[in-house]
C-alpha cells in the first residue's frame, strides 16, 4: 500500500561530515604544537648569507640572538642607514653587549649555562668592523660559543 511507499533513491547519499571536526582538530593541534611566535620585532633589515656547511641550532631556549643590519625603512629617518645592533627589542651599542650576555645568563638554568649559544643574525651587506666589535665584546663577556646565522644552499658562488 501507499503507506509504506519506498522512498525514491535520489542519486548518491551525502557523505557524512561528522568526522570532519576530528580531522580539523588533528591538524589544528599539529599546527598549535609546531608554531613558534616571533618574539622580537625586528628593527633592522636582515638578509642572512648562505652557506653549505651549516649546523642546525638545537635547544632554542639556550640560544640568544644578536641582530646587526641597517635600520628598517620607517626608522631610517631617525636612525640613519648605518648598520646598527639590535638586542631584544631595542637598538643597542656594543657597550650594551656585556650586560645583555649577563642578563641572558641570569635567565638560564645554572647547569645549562655552558651550553648557551649566541647567534649572530647579520645582514650580508654589513662590513666586518661592527661584527668584529661585537665578537670582541662577546669574548670579554666570556660568551665564546657563537653561531653565524646562515641559510642553507648547495653551492657557493664567487
Amino acid at each position: 500500500m501507499s503507506k509504506f511507499k519506498k522512498k525514491k533513491s535520489d542519486g548518491q547519499p551525502a557523505i557524512s561530515t561528522a568526522s570532519l571536526p576530528d580531522i580539523v582538530f588533528m591538524l589544528l593541534f599539529f599546527f598549535m604544537v609546531t608554531t613558534v611566535m616571533r618574539e622580537v620585532t625586528l628593527k633592522v633589515e636582515i638578509q642572512t648569507p648562505k652557506a653549505t656547511e651549516v649546523d642546525k641550532l638545537e635547544r632554542k631556549s639556550l640560544v640568544s640572538y644578536i641582530y646587526i643590519g641597517e635600520p628598517i625603512k620607517s626608522l631610517q629617518g631617525t636612525f640613519g642607514t648605518e648598520p646598527r645592533i639590535q638586542l631584544n627589542d631595542a637598538f643597542a651599542t656594543k657597550r650594551d653587549i656585556i650586560q645583555f650576555v649577563e642578563i641572558e645568563r641570569e635567565n638560564t638554568d645554572e647547569a645549562e649555562r655552558p651550553l648557551m649559544t649566541f647567534s649572530m643574525k647579520v645582514d650580508d651587506d654589513v662590513k666586518m668592523g661592527i661584527v668584529t666589535d661585537v665578537k670582541q665584546e662577546l669574548r670579554k663577556a666570556n660568551a665564546l660559543k657563537i653561531n653565524y646565522s646562515t641559510g642553507k644552499t648547495d653551492k657557493i658562488v664567487d
Binding site: A51, L144, I146, Y148, T150, G151
Partner: peptide, 11 residues
C-alpha cells in the same frame, strides 16, 4: 635556524 657554529678564543 641554521648557521656556522664557531668558538671564540678566550679573552
Amino acid at each position: 635556524d641554521t648557521g656556522l657554529t664557531r668558538k671564540l678564543p678566550p679573552p
